[in-house]
């Protein structure tokens, strides 16, 4: 595998992609839809004006990014979902395989092209993503981290789609499987978590009555691969602001921050739900007491979740590339069903 081979394959793929279909039209439509939705969200926020301090930038940023994440992930399977079997169907794959290009060159080059196209769709969403940044509502650092996470997630989904296209003979099936994978990550993980909570909850017998304790810390990891969770949890926290009420100074995070809210939610889930206890109450301190200061303040000791999710996605991507390369290896020993080598 060489950089030259990967580059050659990527250039070839992008060139053939750009010349098929109406890419410019599709991208223009995408640009209008995403930014139009962002603008509408903004107008809706301004009209309702529920956020404090007249600050619509924060909820707009969160809402737009969650929307952008879901939309780009829905577009991504179409980018790499038929890169291998489509080429086989058109009868061009074998002519590639007899050249000096290695399976790694082909797999990584095609992945780079698909990922590049995915990043282009992300690039086109920047106007409405960067609006709150330009307003000063959200720091550039937060925007950069969030965009980087989306970029990585797009790459992971591209890699998985490509692996499906290498595994399955028909491109229709592989694109379908890619969409199901995205659906599974976005919705399936949440469903599994919801099913997992009652299954792992604890029955506590108080003698006169029985009480079940939800032990979400046992199943939080089901939520970790969810792209929405990864994105929200990885986003750096907004700086806390000081509020003065009755002469006392409270620190609280800005309200209506969808990313921050989601992140606090999953971190609570990871810790497991504890009964609400007054911070300075006289109840004897048990080991679980340190978890009990429950308010809308950020807790420094809260463990983050995103690194597990990102690690999962990176492992998934790595495995997918390896699988794709393995399926491209020749000479072929076992010919998959329904495949004619050439």
């Amino acid at each position: 595998m060489t950089a030259h081979g990967v580059g050659l394959m990527a250039r070839q793929e992008i060139r053939t992609r750009l010349r098929t279909g109406r890419w410019k039209t599709l991208l223009a439509v995408w640009f209008v839809i995403v930014n139009g939705l962002g603008l509408l969200l903004r107008l809706a926020l301004e009209a309702s004006d529920t956020s404090e301090f007249g600050e619509e930038g924060v909820p707009m940023f969160g809402g737009v990014l969650l929307g952008v994440l879901v939309l780009t992930l829905l577009v991504t399977p179409a980018l790499g979902g038929q890169s291998i079997n489509g080429e086989r169907e058109r009868g061009t794959l074998a002519t590639l395989q007899v050249t000096r290009l290695t399976p790694g060159d082909i797999a990584l080059g095609k992945l780079a092209a698909a990922w590049g196209t995915g990043l282009l769709t992300l690039l086109l969403t920047l106007p409405c993503v960067l609006w709150p940044v330009a307003e000063g509502a959200v720091g550039l650092g937060r925007a950069a981290v969030v965009l980087l996470v989306i970029a990585l997630l797009i790459g992971a989904v591209c890699a998985v789609s490509q692996a499906w296209s290498a595994l399955l003979a028909r491109s229709v099936t592989s694109v379908l499987m890619s969409y199901l994978t995205v659906f599974g990550l976005l919705v399936g993980t949440a469903l599994l978590f919801m099913i997992g909570v009652p299954l792992t909850s604890e029955r506590v017998d108080h003698g006169d009555h029985v009480h079940t304790n939800e032990r979400t810390e046992r199943v939080w990891w089901l939520l970790a691969p969810n792209p929405v969770v990864v994105l929200a949890d990885a986003a750096p926290r907004l700086p806390e602001r000081e509020i003065v009420i009755d002469g006392r100074v409270y620190e609280r995070t800005p309200s209506s921050d969808p990313l921050g809210d989601l992140s606090r939610e999953v971190r609570d889930i990871r810790e497991g739900e504890k009964p609400y206890v007054e911070v300075n109450s006289a109840t004897p301190r048990s080991t679980s007491d340190e978890y009990s200061r429950h308010d809308r303040r950020d807790k420094d000791d809260q463990k983050s979740v995103w690194q597990y999710g990102l690690l999962f996605h990176l492992a998934l991507a790595g495995g997918s590339v390896a699988l794709t390369a393995a399926r491209l290896r020749t000479p072929l020993y076992r010919v998959p069903r329904g495949v004619r080598v050439a």
Binding site: R15, T92, T95, T99, T330, A342
Partner: peptide, 21 residues
């Protein structure tokens, strides 16, 4: 296989070409 590939030219019975090029 790599050395063999360098030495051989192969033309399949049916094949596709990159129509866009």
């Amino acid at each position: 296989p790599a050395e063999a590939r360098d030495a051989l030219g192969w033309m399949p019975d049916t094949f596709g070409v990159y129509d866009q090029l």
